[in-house]
């Protein structure tokens, strides 16, 4: 090792040391302990008792676990693609160089920065079957008797999806930047070929923003699998009615801090990690087919 190499190594480690220490203390050690706990019965107060694979066997039998997994998958399957479509649509509209674009952008972006606790309380009130805004407007404008929303097991998950569409502002801004990078010549070429607006969107815009779509898709997946605060606030930590909003992270929280079944919860956490990893890898593999890498 040359003198410069040694100096670089010393400096590099020195500058990276906060992260390296933090990684060992706040990530690696907890990670290893989490693996250990997932094979134990553990409640933080007493010493862990080794029980082998029992937690995982118990998970397979636990109806609530499967319900929670189903609820999370339902939410993910609907909210992620719909949010993507919705944010692309808004970005496309904003990209028409209309006047007052910054005003619109602000309005669409605002919901994403409202503290989640506040927005959850707000939506709980907006969707209240008695006296809520949505049902009131439905009745007034189209004379329709609105559903129970969060009070009905059939409508509670769609309500959550609806709420998630309200906060597509972040993804929209990213798409907006992606759209700005699409070279205008391509549109001119497409126009010469006689493409209409729809044709231009399908053949030019969409292929050019696939990388951005991939990014938002992966982030959306990771976030929606960890969906927690909204349901916690809106159902008082219970996942009511009829467990229809008992999402995975909420059930995990209940097991860890309400029933102190920390070993069981650790096993759940690892299952969640596997699911997220599986979904992400699947998306990344499939992305080879549909993502167009351009300009790189």
């Amino acid at each position: 090792m040359t003198r410069i190499e040694r100096r670089n190594l010393r400096n590099g480690l020195l500058f990276a040391s906060p992260y390296i220490i933090g990684f060992l203390a706040f990530t690696l050690y907890p990670l290893l302990m989490s693996v250990y706990y997932s094979f134990c019965q553990y409640n933080v107060i007493s010493e862990p008792i080794w029980i082998g694979l029992d937690n995982f066997r118990e998970l397979a039998r636990d109806n609530d676990f499967w319900t929670a997994l189903y609820n999370t998958l339902f939410y993910t399957v609907f909210s992620v693609p719909l949010s993507l479509a919705f944010s692309v649509a808004l970005a496309l509209l904003l990209n028409q160089k209309v006047k007052g674009m910054s005003v619109y952008r602000t309005v669409f972006f605002l919901p994403t920065i409202v503290p989640i606790v506040a927005s959850s309380v707000l939506w709980l009130w907006v969707l209240n079957p008695e006296g809520g805004l949505v049902n009131g407007m439905l009745k007034q404008c189209i004379g329709l008797e609105g559903p129970g929303w969060l009070a009905s097991p059939d409508w509670s998950k769609p309500s959550l999806v609806l709420m998630s569409l309200w906060s597509v502002g972040g993804a929209m801004v990213i798409f907006l930047a992606g759209l700005a990078d699409v070279p205008t010549e391509l549109y001119e070429v497409a126009e010469l070929d006689g493409a209409g607006p729809w044709g231009k969107f399908l053949n030019v815009t969409l292929p050019m923003i696939t990388l951005t779509i991939l990014f938002n898709l992966v982030m959306g997946l990771i976030n929606s699998f960890q969906y927690f605060t909204q349901v916690f606030v809106m159902t008082g930590g219970k996942g009511t009615p009829d467990n229809s909003t008992l999402v995975y992270a909420l059930y995990l929280y209940q097991n860890s801090f309400v029933y102190l079944k920390m070993g069981y919860a650790s096993a759940m956490a690892w299952m969640l990690f596997m699911v997220i990893l599986g979904a992400t890898v699947a998306v990344l593999i499939s992305s080879k087919r549909w993502v167009h890498y351009h300009g790189e």
Partner: peptide
């Protein structure tokens, strides 16, 4: 009655 509408705190 509809159990959703009459659940705890859902009567407004």
């Amino acid at each position: 009655v509809d159990p959703g509408l009459t659940a705890q705190n859902k009567l407004g």
